[in-house]
């Protein structure tokens, strides 16, 4: 792992480090909120190790803390995490083989996928994926532990604007892929579908429905290919 850190481009290492700091603070708030809501000390830490996905963890804790049915909390969390299925097919090649593939799969989160996607070559993608994944796993769990122990030191990360930092991070990482006109159309349609359906559907589903946007990219690609042929 140390050799991967060393071989990482310094600018990329700095970018990843910034995201690690921001997500550590969100982890602190998650630990504090879960314990503050009266849930046992070990629950946020267990979730952070075995689930390791912020949005699903917040939803799970929010539902069980408000007296919701644990089965419903599991289903809500699974729905939010279903996006990892298509992610898995996209990053499969960057994980390696054997045990690396099994461990690497657990490190699959929005940030590691987005950092990998933003790299130009296969080898850089692999490094970016692993450094982000391992770094976030460590930082997220340390943050959650600190929050669960220290309690209410940081519960409102919104006051720090961290809720605006997360989408900005993803946008900056996805931006190079949006230079492709067809991908840009697909992304716009997908984002519009997700926003339009959010008030009506359970969390997680709108983002999955956004995948319909992929069809737009294909149609648009085929259209421009035909136009080229006929001209």
């Amino acid at each position: 792992m140390r050799s991967i850190w060393r071989s990482l481009d310094p600018a990329l290492a700095r970018d990843i480090a910034l995201v690690l700091v921001a997500d550590t603070l969100v982890g602190v708030s998650f630990g504090a909120i879960a314990v503050g809501a009266g849930l046992p000390f070990w629950l946020p830490m267990l979730l952070s190790v075995v689930v390791f996905a912020g949005a699903a963890q917040f939803i799970f804790v929010g539902l069980v803390a408000s007296g919701g049915n644990p089965v419903a909390a599991v289903l809500a969390g699974l729905l939010v995490n279903a996006r990892h299925l298509p992610f898995g097919f996209a990053v499969a090649d960057t994980l390696g083989t054997g045990w690396r593939r099994l461990v690497g799969a657990h490190l699959m989160i929005d940030e590691s996928v987005a950092f990998a996607l933003a790299q130009p070559g296969q080898e850089q993608r692999r490094r970016a994926y692993w450094v982000t994944g391992v770094g976030l796993f460590v930082c997220w769990n340390v943050g959650v532990l600190a929050g669960a122990v220290a309690g209410t030191a940081i519960t409102d990360t919104n006051a720090l604007g961290l809720d605006a930092a997360f989408p900005a991070v993803l946008f900056a990482l996805v931006l190079p892929s949006l230079r492709d006109r067809h991908a840009r159309r697909a992304a716009l349609v997908g984002a519009a579908i997700a926003l339009a359906t959010t008030p009506l559907l359970p969390a997680g589903l709108p983002v999955l429905l956004a995948l319909a946007g992929v069809a737009v990219a294909e149609i648009s690609r085929r259209g421009s290919a035909q136009a080229q042929e006929s001209s």
């Binding site: 298509p86 929005d110 809720d163 997360f166 892929s177 992304a187 984002a191 997700a194 946007g213 294909e218």
Partner: peptide, 28 residues
């Protein structure tokens, strides 16, 4: 790859505008 781009873009849009099922407010 396109599917990943679309998913991440949809996450950007939802995370930017939505809190729970409602508008997150203008600051974000």
């Amino acid at each position: 790859v396109t599917a990943t781009v679309v998913l991440l873009a949809a996450l950007v849009a939802s995370a930017a505008f939505i809190e729970g099922h409602a508008f997150a407010g203008w600051a974000r």
